[in-house]
């Protein structure tokens, strides 16, 4: 690792520590990281949308036309229409002409809603229903045991669980009698599902947390003291200890502010 890469790694480590400092309280380091990520991610998003969407979908389609002919001589001149509609979105800045921005907005909403109807039915509803209503494998009903997720019994339980959970969401009929019993089974299925999803989410976050600690330890601290690195110099540990000193100064400053506040509040009136 060369010294420039180490400086970038140090910046990443500093920003990681700055973000973690929110666990203590909202502080200047966290605010710095928070505002920096807002600006950088907005800039990144602009560039990705520009190079990934606007250039290939609009500008390249009109590239063979001439601007002084309003690109009407290009091979796909109809792409001027969404361009004009997009510009009309900017009338939102005007109080007088802001209502014009509703036209492109209406087309956007209409197209998106129209696309959603068949696609949602196909991708979410139909495919899930087909996957739920599979043939039960009676020859392998118990599989390798009760907890075998690929047995025939598991398929049956998935079918019963999904149907009962759907019945729970059906509020047009009172949840009483047999219907109420099935709905109760549905809420049990849902609660187990929510619990499992919650546990899975917690573990995913813990994995990210471990990853950040590994970054601090392996990528940053070890690189700061890795004498076997051919590019190693005294600058590596110096930068490391400078960041540590900065953190220490902040801790002392916070401690002094805390003690000062405590003395002020405990002083006799």
């Amino acid at each position: 690792m060369d010294f420039t890469t180490f400086l970038w790694t140090t910046l990443g480590a500093f920003l990681t520590l700055a973000t973690f400092s929110f666990l203590y309280k909202d502080n200047p380091f966290y605010k710095l990281a928070e505002h920096l990520v807002v600006g950088v991610s907005a800039g990144y998003f602009v560039i990705i949308v520009w190079h990934g969407t606007m250039v290939p979908n609009l500008f390249q389609k009109l590239a063979d036309g001439d601007w002084y002919l309003l690109w009407l001589n290009s091979t796909q001149p109809w792409y001027i229409v969404p361009g004009i509609l997009g510009i009309l979105m900017w009338t939102r800045f005007s109080k007088k002409y802001g209502w014009i921005s509703r036209w492109p907005m209406a087309l956007y909403i209409g197209i998106a809603a129209g696309v959603a109807v068949p696609l949602e039915m196909s991708n979410k509803v139909n495919k899930q229903l087909v996957a739920t209503m599979v043939d039960i494998d009676w020859s392998n009903f118990m599989g390798a045991g009760f907890f075998d997720p690929f047995s025939g019994m598991a398929s049956l339980l998935i079918f019963i669980g999904a149907v009962s959970a759907l019945i729970y969401f059906f509020f047009s009929k009172a949840h009483t009698g047999v219907f109420g019993g099935v709905a109760k089974l549905g809420i049990w299925t849902l609660m187990i599902g929510f619990g499992a999803s919650f546990g899975f989410t917690v573990m995913a976050r813990i994995s990210l947390f471990i990853n950040r600690l590994q970054y601090l330890d392996k990528n940053w601290r070890e690189a700061a003291f890795d004498a076997s690195n051919p590019n190693y110099s005294f600058g590596f540990p110096l930068v490391f200890w400078l960041v540590m000193a900065l953190i220490l100064v902040y801790i002392i400053w916070e401690l002094m502010a805390h003690l000062k506040h405590k003395n002020q509040t405990s002083a006799p009136q």
């Binding site: 509803v125 549905g186 299925t189």
Partner: peptide, 27 residues
Amino acid sequence: NWLMNVPNLAAQRAIVIGLGLGMVATA
């Protein structure tokens, strides 16, 4: 693994089906 692949899958299927129907209704 059984919890994730059986009851959780059943619950997620019901939610996705409900979500799909809700999206269609809203659209």
